[in-house]
């Protein structure tokens, strides 16, 4: 029976066990635990600063988060002309003004409501095609159905065998496909896999999850 995996918070302790300890041996032989160990060692010793990292800025920002969350930093006060501008009354007034201003700005600059059936807003993510049906018809053909994706003008459907060999691929303009691919062994309990990509002008907009097709 498989030994229990090492929890993240236990890794350091298990590393201190003798090399022949079963827990230590498991940590060093199980791919899941060994991967967790590799991530822990990277946490323990992050090595040189990666390109693009800004540790100084991160330190400042993270320290601010901790101080605010734990209440370990005194509230900052800005004193101008003998007045504490960040005293509670002024802080409340400032926050209220900012809120009202933000509300006005949002109302003035809000994006137009989407037109039904029209294009999605630029930058919005396209929903993946939802797989609706995967069944074997009485004549033995596979019937696949999925939900349409706004903006898509075609769909690419791929079918894989249980051994994950691609056995069929086609681009269709409809939201269903009926096919009889070769290379799909039937039999109780065997499965094939499929997925659908929504396309617009030949470019992939979104891709569905990989669904199972129970074969008979």
């Amino acid at each position: 029976m498989e030994r229990e995996h090492v929890e993240d918070h236990e890794i350091e302790q298990v590393l201190r066990l003798p090399a022949d300890d079963p827990r230590r041996r498991h940590l060093e032989t199980c791919p899941k635990c060994r991967s967790a160990l590799a991530l822990f060692l990277a946490f323990d010793d992050p090595g040189p600063v990666p390109a693009g990292a800004k540790p100084r800025e991160a330190r400042r920002r993270l320290a601010g988060i901790v101080e605010r969350e734990l209440g370990t930093a005194p509230p900052k006060r800005i004193v101008l002309g003998g007045r504490h501008w960040f005293s509670s009354g002024w802080a409340f007034a400032t926050a209220a003004t900012l809120l009202v201003g933000a509300g006005i700005a949002w109302f003035a600059l809000r994006p137009p409501a989407p037109v039904p059936g029209g294009n999605a807003w630029r930058g919005a993510t396209t929903a993946a095609p939802a797989l609706e049906e995967a069944a074997v018809a009485p004549d033995g053909r596979l019937v696949l159905r999925w939900r349409s994706v706004p903006g898509a003008d075609a769909y690419e459907v791929r079918v894989y065998s249980g051994a994950l060999r691609e056995v069929w691929r086609a681009t269709v303009s409809d939201t269903s496909a009926s096919l009889a691919p070769a290379g799909l062994p039937g039999g109780p309990g065997s499965v094939a896999w499929w997925r659908v990509s929504a396309l617009r002008a030949g470019r992939e907009l979104a891709r569905s999850r990989t669904g199972a097709i129970p074969l008979r």
Binding site: V49, P50, G52, A53, E57, R59, L62, A63, L70, T72
Partner: peptide, 29 residues
């Protein structure tokens, strides 16, 4: 205060680890 001090000691390693996994400063932060 003790928790804040412990977080201070580990926050840079945490950020660098996050950077290694995300490959991007903003996402790491």
């Amino acid at each position: 205060a003790a928790a804040a001090e412990l977080f201070r000691r580990h926050q840079e390693a945490l950020y660098l680890w996050c950077h290694r996994l995300t490959g991007d400063h903003d996402r790491a932060l």
